[in-house]
Design a protein around this nucleic acid. Sequence first.
DNA 1: TGAAATGTTGGGGCG
DNA 2: ACGCCCCAACATTTC
Length: 483
Amino acid sequence: MSDAPSIVWFRLDLRLSDNPALTAAAKRGRALVPLFILDDEEADEWAIGGASRWWLHHALEALASGLQDHGGDLILRQGPAERVLDEVIAETGAEAVYWNRRYEPWAIARDGKIKDRLKKDGMAVESFNGALLTEPWELKTGQGGPYKVFTPYWKAVRAAGEIPEPLPMPDEMTFISKTPQSDRLMDWDLLPSKPNWAAAFPDTWTPGSEGATGRLSDFLDDAVFAYKDQRNAPGQPGTSRLSPHLHFGEISPRQIWHAAIAKNLAETGEPMSGGVMTFLSEVVWREFSYNLLYHFPHLPKDPLKTEFAAFPWIDDPAGLKAWQTGMTGYPIVDAGMRELWTTGWMHNRVRMITASFLIKDLMIHWSEGEAWFWDTLVDADLASNSASWQWVAGSGADASPYFRIFNPVLQGEKFDPDGTYVRRWVPELADLPDKVMHAPWEASPVELQAAGITLGQTYPERIVNHASARDRALAAYKALKAA
DNA sequence: TGAAATGTTGGGGCG
DNA sequence: ACGCCCCAACATTTC
């Protein structure tokens, strides 16, 4: 009986509770080697984006400190995962490697190869589900194929039986005594400098599993019960803001599921209803996206509805720039894009509005939006991001029909009626009266002057007229359908 | 997890 | 008193 240690390869599961790989490794009873590999050059063109790198830095700090509390050192290494694993195995004499699964096509291919090779070498290798309520191959339609429509998928998740209870943190963890060499986190340059565009991120976020569980319990204490309505008001704190925590695995969907159900049961006597039901359905939208990405691995690149390959997208660098920088002249669009730039996150309702504007008003290819969100969101997630962009474009599974075009003025008036959200993110419009908040070009000269606004100078003129942009998009769609 | 156009209805002004 | 018209208000259809 050897005392060869076990490597726990942390990836998008940066937590100690409900971490099946960690629990299994701890149960094996040998010393643990906690390892994180910065492997993003293996990720095709989906190397971790800028805002996510900021998050990752702090998430790793938090994980390292959590491990430290139990006497463990997190080992940081950079490079192709297979090579790094070989090195760490050689240095430590490890005979087991455990990890929780990822579902990006590049990760599936790579991990499968690594698993086969290490097993051939006589290693004990096991992977686990730490990221999903239901893995993509578990649910099939009556026809035997993957789900392509959300509602039946959501029903199937609930009908599939109990979601497993989250695992507690292992109560016995012993770590390797002679810690292998580790990179220094600061040397990875994950944080921006010159300029530090993430300066305001800490006002909004506390990366790490403590921040995640704190956020969850705050949300469940109150906002979740009004979630059904409040979740659409971007000026109100009505959403959970758990997305980046979930992406990095600082909290698991199983933990969220069971905590939400327990709360609802205590509050209403029913396991799932009202706001909690709606909230959990949003968690399952994430699962649905993973299901789509797994079964349609080209999702990030190509339209699921193949006829969209012929759509007459417009190459418009100036329009794209105006959209990215929040200078379109449509207040709700600009507010969203500036919230994204300032905080690394955007309210869901406004994600739909800004995406509709890019795709339908500007007719710029959805992949431009996908790439921008990938780089600027702290919650950038390949499955959710690509599935959602295709959903808005109308080219995805269970997608919004192409002719469903958001009117940015009406959306603003409906979901930000008192202009709270616009005033927060577009301060140069703060003194406009509510009634023209979402359409400053309709303000009278007197109103504009009183608010200190000169359109075209202090705030841009509209870069397109929505009514004619809508007609143009519908004509393009019609032509596509006829072809 | 839309919006705009078109259709229908009913109340009120008015000759 | 009555019919006509206008037009909200709401419903339905279309994109």
